[in-house]
Amino acid sequence: MTQILKHFAALLVAALPLGLTHAAVYQEPAEFVNESFHGKPPASSALWLTPELKKQMEEILGHPPTGMRVRYWHDQERTTWVMDEIGKELPITTGIVINKDTIERVRVLIFRESRGWEVRHDFFTDQFRGAGMNGKGSLDRNIDGISGATLSVRAVEKLARVALLLDQTIKRKQ
């Protein structure tokens, strides 16, 4: 019996990296950035996270942000962000374009989870178009969820809010 359980554990261990490395790439992040600036992307910049900004991000994400700086692309009024957030167990890579303080475009670029991939569809991501931040740090509109994809929906919505927050931070610095 112990032998059978060991086989089961071996399968579990073997499946773990497989699960972690399996990813559906809907669009390469570099291609998304390129597309966002009509084929002429500016050089990337980095926003260093102050303790205050980290705290604000933590309030949105529900956990401290990973890393001490966030990379972005900035040209006139438009900023583009490519960020990761875990849905249930694995990071969802999402590209977000902010133009004049509102969201111009959201696109799920790489999806690694086994469930919740429906968030990649336009019917979901189009809801973010034109959304801005209200005074309470939330989106100024309701985003309809997708049954069976609650955690993925939540992750993408959090990233949209973080992108708006970071965009505002950059604009304030200018």
Binding site: E28, A30, T66, M68
Partner: peptide, 16 residues
């Protein structure tokens, strides 16, 4: 990483 081993950033091809 910082010398204190705090993660600063994970760079990928999309970051150049």
């Amino acid at each position: 990483l910082t010398p204190e081993l705090t993660l600063v950033e994970r760079m990928t091809v999309s970051d150049g």
